[in-house]
Amino acid sequence: MTATPLDVGDFTVRAGEIVALLGGNRAGKTRWLETILGFRPAQKPVVLFGQDVSHLPVERRVTMGVGYVPAGRRVFAGLTVRETLEASCWLPAPARRRLVDEMLALFPMLGARPQARAWLLSGGQQQMLALARALMNRPRLLLLDEPALGLAPGVVDGLLGHLRELAGNGMAVLLAEQRAGLALRVADRAVVLSRGRILRTAPAAELAGDPTLADLMAEG
């Protein structure tokens, strides 16, 4: 577990670290995440946990320990909360059920409605389900694509709290976000994208105080 969870050549994400991927619409954030996952071919090798995975299909990369929270949440409409979590877990049945119970306890919003079909959940509940789903194979690297979009401020705070806690337990987190201020509240470092290219990589604290950030991002 000493290998760096993610290394794409242009930037890395280390264990226990939250890296923000900043950029406006169409700056290329989703494209980066999908390249890391294997939905798109990569220009440079993608290295997960010290292994070059460029030739592996999406599902193999994911089961190595990558969790993905996609843009727009994409919950499985007809599955219940509990079914969604079970389907996303690759442990044997007893351990799986234990983990589902843990997850329902961790997210009280979901714990209150384990039998609800996903499409009947509110936006905030769906987002929590998407996060819990990504955590079900005990990932060591978590990729999130604008998870705060459309959520009430209180829910966003809860979400960011979860991310900080996960990173505190050693998880590597890559958080793609348009709203820089929000992401910089939890991130250790940030990568600023524009039109698919990396403009800048810097510690979060440095960027947060930088008055040119707004203009940098507006270029996208």
Partner: peptide
């Protein structure tokens, strides 16, 4: 638009 606190602008 940017999620920045107004003061930072």
């Amino acid at each position: 638009f940017l999620g920045l606190p107004a003061a930072a602008a």
